[in-house]
């Protein structure tokens, strides 16, 4: 482990009650929680590694693998489901060749399914790096992805 990589954890009090907060901090900095991070968190909060893993596995927010440059969250809330999120997933699969939980080979896009983004009245929606794209159709989805590809190429 690079020394000091997770030094920023010291901003959080080492009380085990703050374990989730610490993991959220790691996740937002690194985009995921690596094995090294698990060790660092375990030490900082004086909590055994198995318990850290237990908490990590329980909450959907935490990722154990490195996400893509653009993180796509596909909403599968009730409204989005009714309005065709299974189709959106199929379109994404065809456009990117990845399914939920996977990252494209070039590391550009990763895809995850989330329970609800709370934009139900604009269904179906996805968010890319936190930005919500609403009322998707196959066409609009393709042009959104193209825009991100172009942005990445700059």
């Amino acid at each position: 482990m690079e020394d000091g990589k997770f030094e920023y954890l010291s901003a959080v009090d080492g009380d085990p009650g703050n374990l989730i907060k610490g993991l959220q901090m790691v996740q937002s900095r690194e985009g995921y929680v690596s094995d090294d991070a698990v060790k660092a968190v375990s030490e900082h909060f004086s909590t055994p590694v198995v318990e850290v893993e237990g908490v990590l596995g329980f909450y959907a927010q935490f990722k154990r693998v490195k996400p893509g440059k653009y993180r796509i969250s596909m909403c599968d809330g009730t409204a989005c489901h009714i309005k065709g999120s299974p189709l959106v997933r199929e379109w994404l699969r065809q456009e990117l060749g990845i399914d939920s939980g996977e990252t494209t080979e070039d590391g550009m896009f990763s895809l995850e399914t989330v329970a609800c983004l709370g934009c139900c009245s604009l269904a179906p929606v996805i968010s890319i790096n936190g930005r919500v794209h609403a009322r998707l159709t196959r066409k609009s989805l393709a042009s959104i992805l193209a825009k991100y590809r172009k942005e990445a190429a700059l």
Binding site: G77, T78, A79, A115, C116, G118
Partner: peptide
Amino acid sequence: DEGDPGAFMDR
């Protein structure tokens, strides 16, 4: 926590 997927009153 607004867990009901399909609800956004609280948000």
